[in-house]
Structures are given as C-alpha cells and as structure tokens.
Amino acid sequence: MSDVKKIATRESYGNALVELGKEHEDVVVLDADLAAATKTGVFKKAFPERHIDCGIAECNMIGVAAGIATTGKVPFASSFAMFAAGRAFEQVRNSVGYPKLNVKIGATHAGISVGEDGATHQCNEDIALMRTIPGMVVINPSDDIEAKAAVKAAYEHQGPVYMRFGRLAVPVINDNEDYKFELGKGVVLREGKDVTIIASGLPVSNCLEAAEKLAKDGIEAKVINIHTIKPLDEELVIAAAKETGKVVTVEEHSVIGGLGSAVCDVLSENAPTKVLKIGINDVFGESGPAVELVKKYGLDADSIYTKVKAFV
C-alpha cells in the first residue's frame, strides 16, 4: 500500500483544531508541554492567545479545562493518552465526568504504535479507563478524514468527549464522497457472510487488507469500523453477529476493557456469539519502530488474516 496517502491522526487533530478555531471563538486549546508532539502547535501559531500551555502538569491541565468549561468556552485538553487518561484519570472522572462538563480530551500517542519510546508511553488501557466514566463519549478514529470529522463532532456534542489519536501515519481509507461521520454510528466498510471483523483505530485499514486475503481463500468477512466506542453502535454489532455468527474484534489496545470487551458486553446479553478478541494480550509494549511493533503484536494485515482464518 505504498502508493496510499498516509497521515497520522495526531496531525489531523491539530489541523482540525485550527479549522475549528477559525469558526468558533470559544475554542480554547490546552497542552502540557507536548504541543509539538500532539500537533496543537499549529493552533498555537494561529491563535496564540487561545492556546494555554500548562507545562508538565496534566492533572492540573484537566482541572483548568474543567474550570474553563464552566464559563462556557470549549476547551480541548491535549496530551499523550498515557497522561491524559492514565495519570489524570481521577481528574477526568471527578472534575470533568461527574459534573458532565463540556471538556474535550485530545489524547495522542495511543497504543504500541508510539514505537521507540517504549512501554512507559504506550497506553493500551485508555479506552478501558474512559469507557467506565458515566456520560463520557469515547472516539477512536481510523484515519485522517475520520479524525478531523471526530474533532468537529466532539465540538458539536455537548458534554465530555475523549478522542484517541495515533503517532504513526496511517492510510487514508475514508476518502469517498459519501463518507459521513455520525457520533455513535459504526461504518460497514465491507460486506461478508462468514465472519464479522469489528475494528477501531489504527488496525482498521489492516483489517480491510486481511479481508481481501480471506476472500481469496473463499472466506467473506464483513468489516465494520467502530469509531465511537462509547456509545457503541449496539444495533449494528448485534445485527452483524446474528448475520455472520462469528465475530472478531481488532484494536490497538488491551484486550481487557476496550472495543473487544464493549462488543462482548453487548453480545453476551443480546446475541451470544463466539468472539475472538485481537489486541494487546495483557502485556506491556516495548521499544522498536512502530511498524515492527504493529507486526510483532499481531495487528498487521497478515497476523489478522492468519488469526481470523484459524478462528473461522
């Protein structure tokens, strides 16, 4: 796929913020000394007075964002997923979630595709953490187009939103004219009757590639892109499970508490189905080039193909 355009969703985040900033004066962006990495630097350049660098103090940043939100402005608090969802979890829960404040959290550098920085910075737990907060919307876009649409949708949504972005450039897969981002709605990317692959974020494009390979073996896989993990598109998930009988979930996140768990929660109550969860298997990551880690941890197209084939 070398000829495919690739963009990291953190870039999309920064670019989308600039667009939002032009349209809406109430947009305020906060960062914690990572503006160059979270890509909010472009917003800072365009609107320096509306960019608040809180320094290396993520817990305070979330609280400051909460305070700003009480006054009617719309703060986007940015940091790595590890610190936004991990370190500042309790601030997000108590200062943002509990009072249901209109704070948007832009969490970049999620998952193992952080690469060389290694396990301390590779957050594979953020979706699990954020899902447990009542009223929190959790979005995990799969490419540039979806990420930009997600930022806009987050602004329009009244209430807390957690957005998860990646460091690694990923293929643009949603560049079709009728693409429409609807909060809480999954997107069927490919039809199939033998198995449903439900994916989110970085591995979505790899799942499409795996589905093509499976097709050559006579296995027709339905592929669903879930950009909104909470609220989950339960209707779509249940219908697909009933239709294909088998479900595989694929995510760049721990298999504990993420997309796979969310899908299982829904299916166990509504349409008990055998589910294979592909993700990070209750281990910490490690240092290495992101592309190599994606392969090593089984999220590349070949690994997904092999696992789905064995499962079906």
């Binding site: 305020v28 007075e49 509306r50 608040i52 817990c59 305070n60 979330i62 609280g63 400051v64 964002a65 909460a66 305070g67 700003i68 939100a69 009480t70 006054t71 402005k73 703060p75 309790e90 601030q91 108590n94 200062s95 509990y98 009072p99």
Partner: peptide, 27 residues
C-alpha cells in the same frame, strides 16, 4: 455551587481555569 469538588487538590485547578477564562475574554 459553581464547581463540583471534593477530591482534594482539584478545585483550585478549576478556579485557575475560570480565572484564565475571564482573562481570555476580558471579563
């Protein structure tokens, strides 16, 4: 009540956010 609070250390951050917001919009 202008801000939910109770988990110690968090309220002052929200107050700082409110004060920053006032400065931003000249209130």
């Amino acid at each position: 009540v202008d801000m939910s609070s109770g988990s110690l250390g968090q309220g002052i951050s929200a107050a700082v956010g409110m004060a920053i917001s006032a400065k931003l919009s000249g209130d």
